[in-house]
C-alpha cells in the first residue's frame, strides 16, 4: 500500500474551487444521490468513479448548474451555484456538437454566445483546434469526423471559453480503444499545460487511475462517497511505462477490490 494514500489523511491542504455540501437528488421514484460532501482542489484532476447508474452524471450536472439538487449546495469559489456559469465548461458524453456547424463554429460557439467578435473568437478557436490535434479540419462538419475526433471538438470548445473548471462526462466512452489511449495521453498533456481544475467522470478503473490526481469512488445507487484515493504515479514517465508501473497496477487492483462487491 505504499503507493496509495487513502482519504483525508493524505490530501494536501490546497485551495478548494468546487465545494459540494450535503447534495441529495431524487428523481420522482429514484433516489440518485444521498448526502454527497466533496471538495475539489484547484488545479487537480478529480475523477468520479462508480458503477453505471450510481449518479455520476447527475452529480456532474448539478455542479454544472444544469439540474437542480433536491437539497444541499454547491459552491464555486465560494459562490453558490444557481445555474450554469462562465467559470465552468462541460464536455458531453455524446459530444453535443451542432451538426449544421463546422468544427470552427462548434469550437468557437461558447465564445459566440458570449458575444465575442468573429475574428477574435476564431483565432482563439484555431489555437485550441490545433491543441487537440485537429488542424486542417476547421471547415469539416461533425458527420465527416470519427467519434474520437468529434470529442476532440467538444474538448476544444470547453477549453476555448477559458473556464476555471472543466466538467467531463465520460468523454471517451464512445471512442474506440486505440484512440481512447491516445486521447487520455493528450488529455494529460492538456491538464498539465492548461492548469485548470478538472472533474472527470468515468466507469473505467484503468482510465481513472491513469488520468487522475484523486479518485472519488461512488457506491451503487443511491450514490454516496465510499472512498477517496490518490494514485501516486510518476507522470513524467512515458505512457507505456506508466501503464506497466507497479503503483498504477496496484491502484487498479485496490479499486477493483473495493468495487467488486457491487458487481456480485
Amino acid at each position: 500500500m505504499a503507493h496509495l494514500a487513502v482519504a483525508e489523511a493524505a490530501i494536501p491542504a490546497s485551495e478548494t474551487v468546487v465545494a459540494v455540501r450535503g447534495i441529495c437528488k431524487r428523481y420522482s421514484e429514484v433516489e440518485a444521490l444521498r448526502l454527497i460532501d466533496l471538495d475539489f482542489p484547484r488545479g487537480k484532476l478529480t475523477t468520479l468513479l462508480g458503477p453505471s447508474g450510481c449518479g455520476k452524471t447527475t452529480l456532474l450536472k448539478i455542479i454544472a448548474g444544469l439540474i437542480a439538487a433536491s437539497s444541499g449546495e454547491v459552491r464555486v469559489n465560494g459562490k453558490p451555484v444557481t445555474g450554469p456559469g462562465p467559470e465552468r465548461a462541460f464536455v458531453f458524453q455524446d459530444f453535443a456538437l451542432m451538426p449544421w456547424a463546422t468544427v470552427m463554429r462548434n469550437v468557437a460557439f461558447g465564445l459566440e454566445l458570449q458575444g465575442m467578435g468573429k475574428a477574435e473568437r476564431q483565432s482563439i478557436a484555431r489555437n485550441y483546434i490545433a491543441e487537440v490535434g485537429l488542424t486542417g479540419f476547421e471547415d469539416k462538419y461533425p458527420h465527416e469526423l470519427s467519434g474520437g475526433m468529434r470529442q476532440r471538438v467538444g474538448l476544444a470548445r470547453a477549453f476555448a471559453v477559458n473556464a476555471e473548471v472543466l466538467l467531463l462526462d465520460e468523454p471517451f466512452s464512445a471512442v474506440d480503444e486505440q484512440n481512447r489511449r491516445k486521447f487520455q495521453e493528450d488529455l494529460l498533456r492538456l491538464v498539465d499545460k492548461e492548469r485548470k481544475t478538472f472533474i472527470f467522470v468515468t466507469h473505467s478503473i484503468e482510465e481513472a487511475v491513469y488520468v487522475s490526481d484523486r479518485i472519488v469512488l461512488l457506491s451503487r445507487r443511491p450514490g454516496r462517497v465510499s472512498q477517496i484515493i490518490e494514485p501516486r504515479i510518476d507522470r513524467t514517465a512515458s505512457p507505456d511505462a506508466i501503464r506497466r508501473d507497479q503503483g498504477y497496477l496496484d491502484t487498479v487492483e485496490e479499486i477493483w477490490q473495493g468495487l467488486k462487491h457491487y458487481v456480485d
Binding site: 450536472k61 454544472a64 448548474g65 444544469l66 445555474g83 450554469p84 456559469g85 462562465p86 465552468r88 465548461a89 462541460f90 458531453f92 458524453q93 455524446d94 459530444f95 453535443a96 451542432m98 460557439f109 461558447g110 454566445l113 458570449q114 470548445r157 471559453v161
Partner: peptide, 18 residues
C-alpha cells in the same frame, strides 16, 4: 431535439433567444 444540445447551449450561457 437532443437534450444534450439544449444542455450544451445552457451550459455555455445561451440566452433563451439564442
Amino acid at each position: 431535439v437532443p437534450n444534450s444540445l439544449i444542455e450544451m447551449g445552457r451550459s455555455y450561457g445561451a440566452s433563451p433567444f439564442a
